[in-house]
Structure formats: structure tokens, C-alpha cells
């Protein structure tokens, strides 16, 4: 049985101050909270890795203490199969995808916005051309294209993130285009033109900044999740960061043999890191979407 409260005493509703939280359900807030926490942790870890604020040297091998359990001898998460501190390696692993991921985001958002605005605002032939390009970029599976680039050029993570960014652009473009169509239906754009606003102002200030901000943030979160997935998958396959430099993907791969022998942790720890981090970005995007975007 579900309880419904039908008449709330008027004093309880203080609309203005509670407008954000009123719309958001508990679940959405939890999602956003968890996601923001993850983002914060990733950022901090990136900085920690960049400045080497790590509890242990990630390369230091402690042969007496191989595959130790967590909390043994000052190793927060234990050690891997070479006695190296897992926690430090995990933190350092963020270096592998953070900046490249940001690059992918920048490319995806800028290219996507460009295509989306073209398709939505101009309409007609330009729309058809932009849609064609979108479909084109969607036609090749991302992993396949990346392998092609790796084979033709070199397995550089920045090349790869360039591809990730470009292939993530169609999704962004579609969202922006739909938003513009929605705004057109509401005569928003028509009125802006009618009162004489110049085109760049309409596009940049009114459409993008005021109306598409939330889309861009949400897509950025999704793009980062994608970047992490790709980077870890590729380094797992052997194409990204190489040993001994840690990446979550190559850590899983290196620990795989030991997993078969029953030592689950060295492989599972980075896998869980991937899981919880990607989950954070997904949930952040979902929660923000529900609160900021979805029309009831």
C-alpha cells in the first residue's frame, strides 16, 4: 500500500528555497551525491598521483609481502603479485585516463555542439548533412576504429582519446539538436530573432548557456565514463600504458594469471575501482538528468 498525502498545510511549502530539492527525489540526490563524491575522489587522486603524494612508492617491490591482504603492514589495500602497494598503484592509475579523458570530453562537447547547433538551428540541408556525419561516426564500432588507428599510427592514448571524443560527439549533437527543436517549438528562438538579437548571442548565450548547460554537464560525465572504459579496456588488451606504469586495465590483466590460481585480489581491486568509478559517473549523469532535464 502506498501512502499519499493529499493536503499539506500551507506553512509547509516554502517553494522558493526548496525548489531544487523539492523536485529531486531521494534517489536522485543519492545518485548525484555519490557521483560527486567519485568526481572529487578522482580529482584528488589525480593530483595526488601528479605530485606523488602517495603512501608508498608504486614501483617498490616488497618481495616478502607479495599478495598481502589489505591492512597488512601499512598497505591499505594490500599488495599485488610483485609486492607493490595496491593503493598507490590504483591512485596512480588515474593518471592514465584523467587528462586524456578531459581531452575526449572537450572534443566531444565542442564537435557535438557544433554539429548539433548546425543540425538544429539551421535545419534543412545543413541538418541533413550534420545528421549524415553523425550517422557516419556511429557506423564504426569505437573499439574497432581505435584498433585501426593503433595499427596505422601508434598506440598513443591521446590519439585514442581523440577518436573517443569524435565518436562521442554524435550523442551530444543529437541531444543539442533535440533541445533546439524543442526551443523552436516553444517559439523561443523565433521571439529572440524577432526582438533583434544577433545570431551568435542567440546561439551562445541563450541556447547554449541558458538552456544546454545541463545537457553538456551530463554528457561530459557520460563521456568520462566512456573514456575510462575505453582506456582500461585498451590497456587490458595491451595497447595503452605498459608495465610497470600502472593502469587499472593492465593491472587486471597482469593479475589475471594469479586470479586463476585463487589469488583474486590483485585483479579484483582494480576491477572494483573501475566499477565504482564508472558507476559514479553514470549515476551522476542519471541523477542530474532526472533533476535538471526530464520533463515530468
Amino acid at each position: 500500500m502506498k501512502t499519499k498525502y493529499l493536503h499539506k498545510p500551507l506553512s509547509q511549502t516554502n517553494a522558493k528555497s526548496r525548489s531544487f530539492f523539492k523536485k529531486a527525489s531521494t534517489r536522485d540526490l543519492l545518485y548525484i551525491g555519490y557521483g560527486s563524491l567519485v568526481v572529487l575522489l578522482v580529482l584528488l587522486s589525480y593530483l595526488a598521483g601528479a605530485f606523488s603524494w602517495l603512501p608508498h612508492d608504486p614501483d617498490e617491490m616488497n618481495l616478502d609481502l607479495m599478495m598481502a591482504d589489505p591492512f597488512v603492514a601499512g598497505h591499505l589495500l594490500g599488495t599485488d603479485f610483485m609486492g607493490r602497494d595496491l593503493f598507490s598503484r590504483l591512485v596512480l592509475g588515474i593518471q592514465a585516463y584523467f587528462i586524456p579523458g578531459l581531452m575526449a570530453i572537450v572534443i566531444a562537447l565542442s564537435l557535438g555542439t557544433f554539429l548539433g547547433v548546425l543540425a538544429g538551428y539551421e535545419g534543412g540541408k545543413v541538418d541533413r548533412a550534420a545528421t549524415y556525419i553523425n550517422n557516419l561516426l556511429d557506423s564504426i564500432p569505437r573499439m574497432v576504429l581505435i584498433l585501426l588507428v593503433v595499427a596505422l599510427f601508434k598506440p598513443d592514448v591521446y590519439y585514442i582519446m581523440f577518436v573517443v571524443g569524435v565518436t562521442a560527439a554524435p550523442v551530444v549533437a543529437l541531444q543539442i539538436k533535440n533541445k533546439i527543436i524543442y526551443l523552436k517549438q516553444k517559439n523561443f528562438i523565433e521571439s529572440a530573432i524577432a526582438i533583434g538579437l544577433p545570431k551568435p548571442t542567440i546561439i551562445f548565450k541563450h541556447i547554449l548557456w541558458h538552456n544546454c548547460r545541463s545537457i553538456l554537464i551530463i554528457q561530459a560525465s557520460l563521456c568520462m565514463a566512456e573514456a575510462i572504459l575505453i582506456e582500461t579496456s585498451l590497456s587490458y588488451l595491451g595497447f595503452g600504458v605498459q608495465e610497470p606504469i600502472p593502469s587499472w586495465g593492465n593491472m587486471v590483466q597482469a593479475g589475471a594469471n594469479y586470479l586463476m590460481q585463487g589469488h583474486l585480489w590483485p585483479s579484483t581491486a582494480p576491477a572494483l575501482a573501475i566499477l565504482f568509478t564508472i558507476l559514479g559517473f553514470y549515476l551522476l549523469a542519471d541523477g542530474l538528468n532526472k533533476v535538471l532535464e526530464e520533463k515530468q
Binding site: 576491477a271 573501475i274 566499477l275
Partner: peptide
């Protein structure tokens, strides 16, 4: 479902084999 979708598939494969 979200958790399942965030699982890295390569790790899942190994766990399945294990």
C-alpha cells in the same frame, strides 16, 4: 543493472572462468 553495466567485462570473464 547500473552496477552490472559498470563492471569491466574483462574481469567478469576471468571470474567466470575461475
Amino acid at each position: 543493472a547500473y552496477v552490472m553495466s559498470s563492471l569491466p567485462v574483462f574481469w567478469l570473464g576471468y571470474i567466470a572462468v575461475y
